[in-house]
Design a protein around this nucleic acid. Sequence first.
DNA 1: ATAGTTTCTGAAAACGTTATCATTTCCGCT
DNA 2: AGCGGAAATGATAACGTTTTCAGAAACTAT
Lengths: 342, 342
Amino acid sequence: MKVTIKTVAAHAGVSIPTVSRVLNSPDLVNPETRIKVLDAVAALDYYPNGHARGLRLQHATAVGVMVPKLDDFFFSRLYRGIYDTALKHGLTVLLYDAQSDPQRIVGGFSTLKRQQSSGIIFCSATFPAHYSTLTARLGIPVVLALTESEQHDIPAFKVDDVRAAFDAVAYLITRGHRSIGVIAGPLRDPGAGPERFQGYKLALSHYQLPFSDEHVAFGAFRYEHGYAAMTELLLHRANTHITAVFAASDEMAIGAMRCIHDHGLQVPDDISVIGYDDVVLANMITPKLTTIAQPLEEIGRMAVHSLVAAISEGQLPDSKTHYMAHSLVPRESVKSLPYDTS
Amino acid sequence: MKVTIKTVAAHAGVSIPTVSRVLNSPDLVNPETRIKVLDAVAALDYYPNGHARGLRLQHATAVGVMVPKLDDFFFSRLYRGIYDTALKHGLTVLLYDAQSDPQRIVGGFSTLKRQQSSGIIFCSATFPAHYSTLTARLGIPVVLALTESEQHDIPAFKVDDVRAAFDAVAYLITRGHRSIGVIAGPLRDPGAGPERFQGYKLALSHYQLPFSDEHVAFGAFRYEHGYAAMTELLLHRANTHITAVFAASDEMAIGAMRCIHDHGLQVPDDISVIGYDDVVLANMITPKLTTIAQPLEEIGRMAVHSLVAAISEGQLPDSKTHYMAHSLVPRESVKSLPYDTS
DNA sequence: ATAGTTTCTGAAAACGTTATCATTTCCGCT
DNA sequence: AGCGGAAATGATAACGTTTTCAGAAACTAT
């Protein structure tokens, strides 16, 4: 029933090592016997036992991918980059969904280790110092995608959040907006939180616009949070007269749009909205969402490359953050205002 | 550097089998030595080598999950059900994204096999007969989730599409709609195509409403297709006077909503829309989409259970289709019409 | 006290590969 | 003819586990 290298060897009338050679270094074996063996392999539908190989050859066979919440819309493109690159390196990908539960993240590390991950790509959530000690104990390297560690001691691949946020807000400003609200991420979330907020403030000061607390609200990146934050911003609208909002995630942007709609206002006629992420559905809603796009596949590829290097070298090559180019995708949710001559 | 069972044994001053016993059947070993060993395990951060175990114990260690397109919004919930159940069975999950490319599906089967999948859960795409022969050659069982095979010779877990579609359309009818359009899936896609269309027709005839070709358009489930199909339906609107549309997928429903909006009409005031899938974003758009929900996690769980049975028994237990309960989620995209007294 | 039984532990084999080494065969050369 | 070396193949060990199996020690019952 079960076909092993032994079966193939018997079927081809050669020894076991010869079969192995045909499969791994064909030039070492006589062409005639080679085709005999290959015929046997084909006839028997032989697939080498990965466990035996993994045991014998001692190199890595799998990498773990830890994702805080698989529902995140941008994830599929990141996975594509990771998976294809991993496959090229002969690596299996083990996907762990933490379902937004910090407990599950901690447990996930050892689950991934137990499942033979030789390294972990940790995505998009915040990576506190004690995770480092955790993974250090497991003895497997970690690289970060779409996030940074608190101590900046782990290689990371992400967009320059400050610059990207700056560009988003500058886009609004150069379209004539002067009173711009922001829906920022929690300040404790490195990357998506303080940095994007910082980019907002930098853009204001660069264009010499005043900053005021009434222009800012916070939310934890989800749809509901965007809705709630927008409610707050609209509360002060009598004072602020905002004409545009920058949201730190597309999901919040979409929540905000819904909120604006519920208040009897129109996007972008009354209020323009710009998001961050370029999730698939940014292009599906009405109006289509103008937003910041990240090179997700590229980030996935780079993360795997870096991880492979770390695994084979036994040590992390460069624990610095690598910034990848972002871009702004203009769609329909931002309106150009006539130049204000006041 | 590398810590194996041997290291632990030495550190605890016992033999290798004893360590193994402590880990696998603790009651066979003296409590005193047991804690000695457990201390060593903890001190050394020992994790058993999965390849060695996989080789020695001959049972399955991984299941493959083939998904036609990872972007599909409903996928994360299905994965959750699959992953957690697999973990409980000590199985690793290998996720393969075919990226809508039939070529990749075919290649994916052997990739998954090479990565030691002992079985495959094939999701949501159509499963033609020749896939059966392919996987039969690989010698691994397949179960289907959210789809059916053409010959009905493979266990499948899904919603009863005919009934679910019937319910969706009946919902519209009982809300007063008499002229209802349908955006159906391609008739060659078993399950989501002909069945849902059939459900539509059954509902019409059950309520003694006439069927007409001008009420139907087709699309391949994506946003753009929904948009295009709706354009077509609106073309005949002068004749049909449709007040509602049933779309065979939420994505198409959302595309249709956008199309309706682009024609200067309102959902649900001018046209009601009901979808199918209950993807996360159905709850995010404006207006929120009324739709048919499938028990995705449950389906994932059942698929794994069935696959595990098939793997251990060596034979498929029941190659019939298991219908799981669906439900209708009322939200905002359907309007009740006043009773028509004409 | 001794035989029989239970409780605990270690030695050895096996899972399916690949790498090292040794052996055989064959070729070209003096 | 004899010899060095290349080319091709096979025997064997090893990777890290778990599972017999057997043996030692400690009881229990006579």
